[in-house]
Design a protein around this nucleic acid. Sequence first.
DNA 1: TTATGAACCTACAACGTTGCAGGACAACAA
DNA 2: TTGTTGTCCTGCAACGTTGTAGGTTCATAA
Lengths: 335, 335
Amino acid sequence: MAVTLHDVATLAGVSIKTVSNVVNDYKHIRPTTREKVLAAIDTLGYQPNISARSLRSGKTGVIGLALPELSLSYFAELADAVIRAAERRHLVVLIEQTAGGDREREIEMLSSPRLQLTDGLIFSPLGMSSDDVGYLNVSYPLVLLGERIFGGPTDHVTMRNVEAAKAATAHLIARGRTRIAVIGAHEGEVVGSAALRLRGYLDALAEAGIEPDESLIRYVGLWHRLDGAQAMHELLDSGVEFDAVFGLNDTLALGAMRVLQESGRRIPDDVAVIGFDGLDETKYSLPTLSTVDPGRDEIADMAVDVLVERIANRDAPPRQYLTDFSVIGRESTAD
Amino acid sequence: MAVTLHDVATLAGVSIKTVSNVVNDYKHIRPTTREKVLAAIDTLGYQPNISARSLRSGKTGVIGLALPELSLSYFAELADAVIRAAERRHLVVLIEQTAGGDREREIEMLSSPRLQLTDGLIFSPLGMSSDDVGYLNVSYPLVLLGERIFGGPTDHVTMRNVEAAKAATAHLIARGRTRIAVIGAHEGEVVGSAALRLRGYLDALAEAGIEPDESLIRYVGLWHRLDGAQAMHELLDSGVEFDAVFGLNDTLALGAMRVLQESGRRIPDDVAVIGFDGLDETKYSLPTLSTVDPGRDEIADMAVDVLVERIANRDAPPRQYLTDFSVIGRESTAD
DNA sequence: TTATGAACCTACAACGTTGCAGGACAACAA
DNA sequence: TTGTTGTCCTGCAACGTTGTAGGTTCATAA
């Protein structure tokens, strides 16, 4: 059925190896020979067998991308960006979902035989924590994304969470807001997106000389829209005064915004709202949502680059890479 | 570096083939031998080399999924469902994006050597049309999704678009609405989601004895939120009266809803709105959006099943499979 | 006792490719 | 002339696996 080097070689009247050389752009080939071979390849419609090539070379041209779940917009947009970045480098992406970031699933995934197909993995953990850092000692090239785990034995690409959250908070302060609620904190967390962004929030308050108010900090379990909505309900019920909300991600902010509107508050007049992540969706909400763009394309590009380098050179010491961010002001924080 | 059958065989004191037999659950193996081998596998941490296995067997355990782009929620949720469905069958999914549904890219993708890695493809076209049906004559197992192309030479999984759109429209009519605008029609289209859903809309009107009004049918280019918003602007500017809106997909409906609210209309009091696709997001909008659930999980399950069958039996005639749908009433069409 | 067949195990070849080593030939310098 | 260098091409072996065919052992039946 399938056309092999052998078939091409026979038709072109050369050896198998010469065909292979042509296919792989080997230098020392007479132009006439090259053309004969290319013609044969063309008439037979030859395509190299990737399995055989992989077996021989040990490379597959596939990279893995493990993330909690594609239904979450943040990860869908991340996957989109990673696939595009990989494509530019002639790599193809195989996606593993870890059941919404289940710790056991993540650990299991790290040693899954399914990764055999892969030259390396880009991993965005959610359930695992720094305690699980030992599981990252894998035998294949691994690039870590996000803020769940620091100081692991692998390359790590992440954004400047503290600085970005500080900038988002400063954005609100610059618009005269002083009673800024923050939604999405995680009880007792030290690293992780929630903790880092909360720290940025506190830094900004400190810099502006605003006393932090614990009653303005709302804790949630997950970072879904429902959690944002519920946290806002609680905040409203508590009766505490506030004139701005910082959602530690866009989804939380959108959920909170909905509840604010239901309660009759005007955005941004009564309450200004800002999110975090730069989701596409924030451009279309009512009102449009100010947010922090973490530079997703840059993260994706960098992650793929770093992985490619790591595949080429496994002995280099692991490095940490930081991307740039930008605050995007929209209607929800308009003056 | 990597542990092979050979290493395991040496340690266990049996032949390579016996180890292979154990790994592949060959029946006639003495329990004691099996345990010896399993012990050796365990101590060495053996994992089969998938490239070699693929080369030998011609199967990779990978299926391709080609779709316009993951940033569009519909496709992100579809990909999520397909990956889950594939996982249940011990398959892994490789995702190809076709640049938002670019026709050239779709055609190119169909003969990409990247598909070599794959046992078959699930393809959700957007740019290609029924004129391009010839390009679907590929040599690998292919399952088509969606409504762009009918009557192709491949298996096809889709939903009952006409019936579902009719049901959505009837849902509005049952709530006393008679001036129902529809957003998202495609000029001159005959097949395709837009045309089919528009037909369902017209069928429902006809059944209720409502005369269709061409000025209530709004045409758009793409099905993004901005297009929905713009169509609604035009509709409002046109001054035509309406008491309900049927967005041919959820994104259009959400965009339209935003503009309706900006214009001061109350939903559903002044205007009822229903969408189509059952996006997760519709559960969280303000107000929550009524929609049609096309049974995405069922589509994904079926697509993977059909592909697996097709891989096993390439000679069976192509079939068309239809999934069930359900109308989900929410706040945007509440009585 | 031997014949029969099932249970268990093994050697060999092959899947399609590429690295390696080397051969044939031409061009050029000494 | 001979030696040297470079160009162009080839055969062989190997990557790790599984299908095929066949061999050995053992229990059971004749």
